[in-house]
Write a protein that binds this DNA or RNA. Sequence first.
DNA 1: GGCGCATGGTTCGTTTGTTGAACTGACTCC
DNA 2: GGAGTCAGTTCAACAAACGAACCATGCGCC
Lengths: 150, 150
Amino acid sequence: MRRTRFDEAPCPIARTTDLIGDWWTPLVMREALSGVRRFGDFVERLEIPKAVLTARLARLVEEGMLDRVEYQPNPPRYEYRLTDKGRAFWDVLAAMWRWGSDWLWPDGVPPLALKDRETGDVIRPLVVDEVTGNAMNVRTVRMGRNPDAH
Amino acid sequence: MRRTRFDEAPCPIARTTDLIGDWWTPLVMREALSGVRRFGDFVERLEIPKAVLTARLARLVEEGMLDRVEYQPNPPRYEYRLTDKGRAFWDVLAAMWRWGSDWLWPDGVPPLALKDRETGDVIRPLVVDEVTGNAMNVRTVRMGRNPDAH
DNA sequence: GGCGCATGGTTCGTTTGTTGAACTGACTCC
DNA sequence: GGAGTCAGTTCAACAAACGAACCATGCGCC
């Protein structure tokens, strides 16, 4: 089942897809972002085959989304800690959360919601343009040469 | 050993991952959102194996992200048109675009940028809370029971 | 009326990733 | 010294991805 790579693509979507474009990596990141650090906890919470988890964690460490840190010397035991890069990835998962909530429960509403940790208010992620604050819309956007390139 | 499915998961991230968690579907959607409709154009632009494209398009049609529309009767020829659900998926790709731009060009900046179709201004997608307008941040968020459920 | 071209696929052999169960190795606690 | 903990590795079966070849229908051209 060999797999085509996009890690050298000129498009940020393609490179991101290369990194997280499988059915386990986003869930591993979801767990990591919920505070999971240990191999056994990932296995238990996701029911992911251990061999697959080993491979995914290795890639995420290699890509700098997680750090593999020894948390006890004897016997050596390692845990996986989020880096800034990994933490920033939350935005992508939040966008997936919103779209999934809006479109993948045809007969109602998902049982889970995102909430503010302090106030408990429901949070609804929305993708906007940082400058104008306007919601995204494909029709008003195009891809073009980056004026800051070179 | 079929791949593990998450389409009945209670978590929107998991269901979304089930749908787009592979290395072609996000790119097929990227092309669809750039206006590509025809089988041959997807093949040409992505260099995707035709059998794989056939499978991906079938899934996207089944899930209601694309419509398969006959655009000529003799010989019958079909094209793939975005639905509202598919168009809404742009937000997820925009979040991936932003994260990829920020983190996957360690030695510079990607050659491509998103621009406003009218003004040409560079657009930087950002994920915020719809109510407060504040940027997302994992640390201030938790997942919990949806108060609107049931 | 036969020939090549366009288009939207299907078929198929090979390669490679996924799965899940069994196993490992270093250490601790009793 | 036996059971338990934990972070993995190994292995065999299977399924999916790859890419090249092939197919089917109709069109315009000579």
